[in-house]
């Protein structure tokens, strides 16, 4: 399933947002917010698919601590490296999760952390390269027990 979705994403490079819609997600109030955050982060550019991989479980039993990792394909040299990666969750009270800032000293552009998810939702990762190009990946994570408030 993951593979088909990725292929679909690659196929629809320019239409990432459009491809995301058929996954059956109802429109959350903060889905627009998420778009706003992406645009703010990229400076108005629409991110392309590819280069960035979001590594997350398909089903998270406990929304309080969901392991999430991102890897960006980059040589990480002084000429060509990943500046930052933003993580967003469109079904949380606020979409922001974290921003990772890399340097050529990082060696590889990969990081893992643990996040909270209030409910089943899409998690989006957007990477910004030092030349200004932007790439994104997203994944739907099913949450059994939500991790916000109580």
């Amino acid at each position: 399933m993951t593979l088909t979705r990725r292929q679909a994403l690659v196929a629809g490079a320019g239409a990432v947002v459009a491809t995301a819609l058929p996954f059956g997600m109802p429109a959350f109030a903060s889905e627009e917010d998420t778009q706003k955050h992406i645009m703010e982060f990229t400076g108005g550019k629409t991110p392309e698919a590819g280069k960035i991989t979001l590594d997350a479980p398909e089903i998270a039993e406990n929304g309080n601590t969901v392991p999430i990792g991102v890897t960006v394909d980059s040589p990480m040299t002084a000429d060509s490296y990943v500046e930052s990666v933003i993580l967003l969750a469109d079904g949380n009270p606020s979409p922001g999760v974290a921003t990772f800032n890399f340097t050529p000293m990082s060696g590889t552009a990969a990081a893992t952390t643990r996040m909270r998810l209030a409910k089943t939702q899409n998690v989006v990762a957007v990477a910004k390269m030092n030349d200004g190009s932007v790439f994104m990946d997203q994944k739907q994570i099913k949450v059994t027990i939500g991790g916000c408030g109580g």
Binding site: P104, T108, R114
Partner: peptide, 27 residues
Amino acid sequence: EFNGQAVFSCNMEPAISANPYFEFNAR
């Protein structure tokens, strides 16, 4: 930081779990 040079940093939002954990690489 490594010897005063930035390696990796992260801005966290409330959506980061309790007892924040990070795994990353460094040259």
